[in-house]
Design a binder for these strands. Structure first.
Lengths: 212, 212
DNA sequence: GTCTATAGATTGATAGAC
DNA sequence: GTCTATCAATCTATAGAC
């Protein structure tokens, strides 16, 4: 199990470099050099640079989304069992906790999280759409659950507030790499501690009063 | 006043294209074509592509930061006058409201906001540092004021929560252009309405209880 | 200051031998 | 599947005429 096959080596190298340098500035030459494979191997295995990043994203995002979706469904089931509204904190936790935990699961996962954090603001339509299409169903699932949780709030307010939570989460993940102004202490909180900090914050924001 | 000078035309065109297509994918050829000036004019007036984006950013960010800084100082002065803690909602408003209002002030300003929203996640160190150095003093000023406002909270918690607000704000500004999942109604709220929505959310999150 | 022309380097992609 | 060699296009930057 020492040496992975060429395809996986390319995916790992691309993930790392796309995260570190960005999609456009990273050349196929840099990727194949990092992966220690031949330049032509990229086009042989993937067909194009665009198809490569598509696989880089899908490889990790599909399992992660499946986990988050499962967690959201559990919150919904639990609420129905109790015949209560799903607590908004549980809804947020189902989305946020797996995301931050996933980031700690390895070097590749960490690079990947940086990568998708940038995919949201990516100007290139093709790159951004790859991410959008994979995240939209999950985002809709979370929205519908949040709507059940806070039925007294207008739908557009719920949607904006969920966007605020997404923004806070993605910005946080980026901060953990390269921060505008890092927290005073040297050591950063672990995934579990940071999850709590952000979930508390987002839940308070979600639950705050709204006068129309 | 019909025709601006070459330098300004280049800045306007660069702002627009860097926002729409991104920094790296935008070529100097595309910029000079959009500005209807000669290709060589960029290097004559700015010296390099990097120096160009530096001026694109500084041209609008310096006045905007001056305004936000003034608003923060006013909140601080008002609190000292009343011998009270500065309300966290006022602190957040001093930062957020000018930002969203600025975005409505014209086509260029709108493109610019998209551009700086992406600058935070920009992998290129040179581009990101241009933005970082200009925003850091302001961010520190806001942090110190928030610390006066919420003295019972640990400094690192205040810092994280401010980052959450920054993340929510930048994500929101990006959503106003290209959203993962746009709000149900066709029309978007104006700067004033959206400011209130985000300030209410962020203030609730900032004020929420924290058990160490 | 503005232009043409081009240098010099790098890119994504491919053809074809092995 | 993997390699070398290369094409064709694009890029930033600059030299030099006007």
């Amino acid at each position: 199990m020492g040496k992975k096959d060429t395809k996986e080596r390319i995916l790992d190298a691309a993930e790392l470099l796309f995260a570190r340098e960005g999609y456009h500035p990273t050349s196929l030459r840099a990727i194949t050099k990092e992966a220690d494979v031949n330049l032509a191997a990229v086009n042989y295995h993937f067909g194009s640079k665009e198809a490569l990043i598509k696989e880089v994203i899908a490889r990790r995002l599909l399992p992660l989304n499946a986990l988050r979706s499962k967690r959201l469904q559990e919150v919904k089931d639990e609420a129905q069992r109790k015949k209560q509204k799903p607590p908004i904190k549980d809804v947020l936790r189902a989305f946020i906790e797996p995301t931050l935990k996933f980031r700690e699961s390895g070097r590749g996962a960490r690079a990947f999280v940086t990568l998708v954090g940038r995919a949201i603001t990516e100007p290139d339509d093709t790159v951004r759409n790859i991410f959008m299409e994979l995240i939209q169903p999950l985002f809709r699932q979370m929205f519908e659950l949040a709507d059940e949780s806070l039925p007294h709030l207008p739908k557009d307010i719920i949607l904006w507030r969920l966007h605020f939570a997404i923004g806070a989460l993605t910005h946080t993940m980026h901060c953990m790499d390269k921060c505008i102004m890092p927290p005073p202490g040297v050591e950063q909180p672990g995934a579990q501690a940071l999850s709590s900090i952000i979930i508390d914050y987002a839940a308070a924001g979600m639950e705050s009063a709204h006068e129309s």
